[in-house]
Design a protein around this nucleic acid. Sequence first.
DNA 1: GCTTGCGTTGGAGTGTACTCTAAGTGTTAA
DNA 2: TTAACACTTAGAGTACACTCCAACGCAAGC
Lengths: 126, 126
Amino acid sequence: MTIGEVSKKFNISKDTLRYYEKEGLINQVSKMNNRREYSEHDIENINFILCMRTAGMSIEILKKYIDLCMQGDGTAEERRNLLIEQREVICSKIKEMENAYNKLSYKIDFYYQTLLKKEKEIIKGE
Amino acid sequence: MTIGEVSKKFNISKDTLRYYEKEGLINQVSKMNNRREYSEHDIENINFILCMRTAGMSIEILKKYIDLCMQGDGTAEERRNLLIEQREVICSKIKEMENAYNKLSYKIDFYYQTLLKKEKEIIKGE
DNA sequence: GCTTGCGTTGGAGTGTACTCTAAGTGTTAA
DNA sequence: TTAACACTTAGAGTACACTCCAACGCAAGC
């Protein structure tokens, strides 16, 4: 897959893909005529990275994880611990967002009541 | 309440509080001897803003909402629509994060299996 | 009166994650 | 063969949300 195709597939810019490679999130993509050729493995990797990025995981943490992967089997436990830690971070973020969701719902409902009341008054006034 | 007290209460820096005020998220706090005195209303406001900020709402959107509040009752419907829209944004973010959570859980489990297998091999080898 | 502590200001600086630019290469289609 | 198009690079620029700095103000306690 070319960079253009990957860019379209995931709806991210080519610049971002090159940036991730430069930062070491994607291991050096093989090249044909000086152009990137993304393998199935690369695609899977990008998919994971994007999923974690949208969940708010930093590039630094992701890089650390990828680096551990590169270092081979010996780092399996460390990698596992890193993922458990990050899952916890995501978990508390979800809780914060649910809290915000509820606060918003409460306010939205309040506006609904207000608008309803106003409407009634208008009808009454006619 | 002084800026120092509010800063401690919410665990944010005084700079951030002044920054939010400058950006118009908190309406001009009254001053005694040129020092900010936060009212109960200010505190409630800050609480809401921080809740939305941790949920990822941008300062720009928050400012828009606060501006509408300032403009009075006439903007109630517009405010409500803004909140509904933002609730939707938060909702999809929660879904993305839950997706990431599940992906992580899957990987963590995979590492668990791997480590278990490795352990068995070590025992076998002894 | 002097130090300490808490505050003030405008404006500069920082970190993160892109995003854009300029100048160039290599393939394809008319 | 020339134009269009997709790609390459290094490096500069941008957006967002703070965060820090220097220089100063004011009140309390020693």
